[in-house]
Simulated assay, not measured.
Amino acid sequence: MQQKLFLTGIGTDVGKTICAAVLTAYFQAEYWKPVQAGSLSYTDSMRVRELTGHYTHPEAYRLQLAASPHNAAAKEHIHIKLDHIQLPDTDQQLIIEGAGGLFVPLSDQVFMIDLIAQFAIPAALVVRDYLGCINHSLLSIQALRQRKIPLSYLILNGTFDPDTERVICMYIGQETQVIRIPELDVIDRAAILSISKQTLI
């Protein structure tokens, strides 16, 4: 893995945080979620730390409402600014988890993909198999390509129809490695660490 990796998804609820935990353990990395919207009593950072035991950096923005970051911020009269979101100063490998997909708005002017471009680091794209996932996956891959953001990893989270997997994987470049994370019946530290000890790449 590159020293820093931005983990995004083809949409909401595709399992980014679980995949982030697996990669954090696999790469022996630290974890950072720049923007947390909602669930402040049990944030994604808290969950990853619980599942891996690894260090998690504090969020740049912690917003009360479980909604798109631009909406959650507006409710608190906050304007999210890219220059306020700075990469943590660390020599360790770092997994960064975004909120939702690439075009989740951080404000009326900027989107999650703009944050990835600002960091100038590779991305990992989490995909889950559902009706419409091929379209969402190919749109996401194309958007990253247009912004010249390297896609280091395509993460297939859970069980996939073979033809769905085949079509999606046709559209990634040779520089992109595929990681398959199995469906988990129980999500706890033992399960995450067990997967992280497997050869994922």
Score class of each variant (00 low, 15 high):
residue 1 M to V: 13
residue 4 K to N: 09
residue 4 K to L: 06
residue 6 F to E: 01
residue 7 L to M: 03
residue 10 I to M: 08
residue 10 I to Y: 05
residue 11 G to M: 12
residue 12 T to H: 11
residue 13 D to A: 13
residue 13 D to I: 05
residue 13 D to K: 10
residue 14 V to C: 08
residue 14 V to P: 05
residue 15 G to T: 11
residue 18 I to K: 09
residue 19 C to G: 01
residue 20 A to K: 06
residue 22 V to R: 08
residue 23 L to A: 14
residue 24 T to S: 14
residue 26 Y to I: 01
residue 26 Y to C: 02
residue 27 F to P: 11
residue 28 Q to N: 15
residue 28 Q to C: 14
residue 28 Q to I: 14
residue 29 A to N: 09
residue 31 Y to E: 15
residue 34 P to M: 13
residue 36 Q to R: 15
residue 38 G to W: 12
residue 39 S to H: 13
residue 39 S to R: 13
residue 40 L to R: 11
residue 42 Y to G: 06
residue 43 T to A: 14
residue 44 D to S: 10
residue 44 D to I: 09
residue 45 S to T: 02
residue 45 S to Q: 08
residue 47 R to F: 04
residue 47 R to I: 15
residue 48 V to P: 00
residue 50 E to D: 11
residue 50 E to A: 09
residue 52 T to N: 14
residue 53 G to I: 08
residue 54 H to R: 13
residue 56 T to P: 05
residue 56 T to L: 14
residue 56 T to I: 02
residue 56 T to M: 07
residue 57 H to G: 13
residue 60 A to G: 06
residue 63 L to Y: 07
residue 65 L to M: 01
residue 66 A to H: 07
residue 66 A to S: 11
residue 67 A to W: 04
residue 67 A to V: 12
residue 70 H to T: 02
residue 73 A to Y: 00
residue 76 E to H: 05
residue 78 I to S: 08
residue 81 K to S: 10
residue 81 K to W: 08
residue 83 D to Y: 01
residue 83 D to V: 01
residue 85 I to F: 02
residue 86 Q to G: 00
residue 88 P to F: 00
residue 90 T to Y: 04
residue 91 D to N: 09
residue 91 D to I: 11
residue 92 Q to H: 13
residue 93 Q to V: 02
residue 93 Q to P: 07
residue 96 I to T: 06
residue 97 E to R: 04
residue 100 G to V: 04
residue 100 G to D: 03
residue 100 G to Y: 09
residue 100 G to E: 12
residue 101 G to F: 01
residue 102 L to Y: 03
residue 103 F to V: 02
residue 104 V to F: 07
residue 108 D to H: 00
residue 108 D to M: 05
residue 108 D to R: 00
residue 110 V to M: 02
residue 114 D to H: 14
residue 114 D to S: 02
residue 115 L to Y: 06
residue 117 A to L: 12
residue 120 A to C: 11
residue 120 A to R: 13
residue 121 I to C: 07
residue 121 I to D: 07
residue 121 I to R: 03
residue 121 I to T: 09
residue 124 A to G: 02
residue 125 L to F: 01
residue 126 V to S: 04
residue 126 V to R: 10
residue 126 V to P: 12
residue 127 V to Y: 08
residue 130 Y to H: 12
residue 131 L to K: 01
residue 133 C to K: 03
residue 134 I to S: 08
residue 135 N to E: 04
residue 135 N to I: 12
residue 137 S to C: 07
residue 140 S to M: 08
residue 143 A to E: 03
residue 143 A to G: 00
residue 144 L to D: 01
residue 145 R to V: 11
residue 147 R to A: 14
residue 152 S to P: 05
residue 153 Y to H: 05
residue 153 Y to S: 09
residue 155 I to E: 03
residue 155 I to D: 06
residue 157 N to D: 10
residue 158 G to P: 03
residue 161 D to H: 06
residue 166 R to E: 11
residue 172 I to A: 05
residue 172 I to E: 01
residue 174 Q to F: 01
residue 174 Q to T: 05
residue 179 I to H: 04
residue 182 P to D: 08
residue 182 P to N: 15
residue 182 P to R: 07
residue 185 D to P: 10
residue 186 V to D: 10
residue 186 V to I: 15
residue 186 V to W: 10
residue 187 I to K: 04
residue 187 I to C: 10
residue 188 D to A: 06
residue 189 R to M: 12
residue 191 A to L: 07
residue 194 S to R: 14
residue 195 I to F: 06
residue 195 I to H: 08
residue 196 S to K: 13
residue 197 K to A: 15
residue 197 K to M: 15
residue 199 T to I: 15
residue 199 T to D: 14
residue 200 L to Y: 12
residue 201 I to H: 15
